[in-house]
């Protein structure tokens, strides 16, 4: 432990972090602080204490394991802006600001679990899995289904998210988001695509209470990819699959429309990349 106080723990190793997690169930786990600190300031959230993972070196960095990228949960988003996955690169490069990305982590983005968080559609489309570690061991769960409601995940008591595993795609992956400004904006809506071997998979942000994908959308996207369907078909399928919020930033109608546009554009990019489109 670099620092230990009744309301603050700063472990250096994963072991110390897990022990602290067990000892301090009420503490808020904080990595970069870029979500937690504004939460305390703006969203009236209170915390009983911090367990900071910021100095656990083992959680930072990316390795390759077989066909998967293993991204430590404490890896800063800035490091993902050069990731080998096009979707991750794009999502990371448009997250927050350059000054935020140096501290924001992939783990924080996942665990904060709001539907507009940048990295989530990419992880969902890419078929990512999560390493959840507790004092008793590690379990690996699909990211699909991990977020159960805005801000709510399947993380169990005593568990920490320790790594995100992302299949290394040989195909095409991309991400795009729409907002009301040209930099530094929360996604009004967002979308990610992965296409490989003629099959497209899409996922959406702020298209419902949790990151969203659907088999019907992927079927329509794949059909568009190989020319068996029209853009209008995909847009109609997306419109039926999503349930976006209505708020002062945008209407649900606009979001539904924009999700369809993004879906078509991303699949079209995948088709061009595969030499299938114009």
């Amino acid at each position: 432990m670099l620092l230990e106080a009744p309301r603050f723990a700063l472990p250096e190793t994963l072991g110390e972090a897990l022990a602290a997690r067990a000892e301090r169930p009420e503490a808020v786990v904080v990595a970069g602080g870029t979500e937690v600190m504004p939460d305390l300031l703006w969203r009236n959230r209170t915390a009983a204490g911090f367990l900071s993972l910021r100095r656990v070196a083992a959680l930072r960095g990316t390795t390759t394991d077989g066909g998967e990228l293993v991204i430590g949960a404490g890896t800063p988003v800035a490091a993902l802006t050069t990731a080998p996955d096009g979707g991750l690169r794009a999502a990371a490069s448009s997250l927050g600001t350059p000054l935020v990305r140096t501290e924001a982590t992939i783990g924080g983005n996942v665990v904060s679990a709001l539907p507009y968080r940048n990295l989530l559609p990419t992880l969902l489309a890419g078929g990512a899995t999560l390493e959840l570690t507790s004092a008793t061991g590690t379990r690996v769960v699909p990211f699909d289904g991990f977020v159960t409601a805005p801000g709510v995940t399947g993380l169990r008591e005593g568990e920490l998210l320790t790594a995100v595993r992302m299949p290394v795609h040989v195909g095409f992956a991309d991400y795009a988001k729409v907002g009301r400004r040209n930099a530094q904006f929360v996604a009004t809506v967002s979308a990610a695509v992965v296409s490989r071997d003629g099959v497209a998979r899409l996922a959406f942000g702020n298209a419902g209470p949790t990151p969203l994908r659907s088999d019907a959308v992927d079927t329509a996207a794949t059909a568009l990819l190989d020319g068996r369907a029209t853009p209008e078909d995909l847009r109609a399928t997306v419109a039926a699959a999503v349930d976006p919020p209505e708020d002062t930033v945008a209407s649900a109608e606009y979001r539904r429309h924009a999700l369809g546009v993004l879906a078509v554009r991303l699949v079209t990019r995948a088709a061009v990349d595969a030499g299938l489109g114009s």
């Binding site: 620092l3 602080g33 600190m37």
Partner: peptide
């Protein structure tokens, strides 16, 4: 954005 004590 940085909890100060993480900079210990």
């Amino acid at each position: 954005l940085v909890p100060a004590a993480t900079a210990a």
